[in-house]
Simulated scan of single mutants.
Amino acid sequence: MLRTIRAVSLLLVLLLGGVWAHAWMTRAPGEGLAEAFAGRIGRLFGAEMPVPSAGGGVQLAQGVSLGGPFSLTDHTGRAVTDRDFAGRWMLVYFGFTYCPDVCPTELGTIAAALDAMGPAGESVVPVLITVDPERDTPEMLADYVGRFHPRMVGLTGTPEQVAAVARLYRVYYAKSRKPDTAEYLVDHSGFTYLVGPDGRVRRLFRPDTAPEALAAAVSAQLANRPAATN
Rank of each mutant, 00 (worst) to 15 (best):
Q59I: 07
E35H: 13
V145W: 13
Q59P: 07
M90P: 00
Y173N: 09
I5H: 04
P126A: 04
P119N: 09
H22Q: 12
L114N: 05
R177L: 13
V186P: 07
G18K: 09
G87P: 12
Y193N: 05
H149K: 10
G32E: 05
D143Q: 11
G17N: 03
V145R: 04
Y144H: 11
A163S: 12
G56W: 00
A38H: 14
P119V: 08
P126L: 10
L168F: 04
V153H: 06
G18T: 12
P179V: 07
R83E: 15
V127L: 03
Q221W: 08
V218Q: 02
T229R: 15
G146C: 03
E122P: 00
M1P: 08
V165F: 00
A54W: 10
H149G: 08
A86M: 01
M49W: 05
P150I: 14
D180H: 12
G18N: 13
A223L: 09
P126T: 04
L11Q: 10
Y173F: 15
G57M: 03
P119W: 11
L204K: 02
E48F: 02
A111F: 03
R200Y: 15
P50V: 03
D82H: 14
F94H: 11
A228Q: 14
L168D: 07
E31D: 02
P179I: 10
M25T: 13
A120D: 15
H75K: 09
V8F: 09
H75D: 14
S71G: 01
A111G: 10
A220N: 06
G77K: 05
L60E: 01
A28N: 02
A113E: 01
G154T: 01
T97G: 07
V19I: 15
T76Q: 13
T192Q: 04
G46E: 03
T229I: 12
V165S: 01
R135H: 14
P197S: 13
Y93P: 04
S219E: 14
L10W: 14
T109G: 08
W24E: 15
G17I: 10
A28H: 11
F37E: 04
T137F: 04
P197A: 06
A112T: 11
T81E: 02
A227Y: 08
N224A: 15
D101S: 12
T209R: 04
S71K: 11
L107M: 15
L66S: 00
A164W: 10
R167I: 01
A112F: 06
M25S: 14
G95K: 06
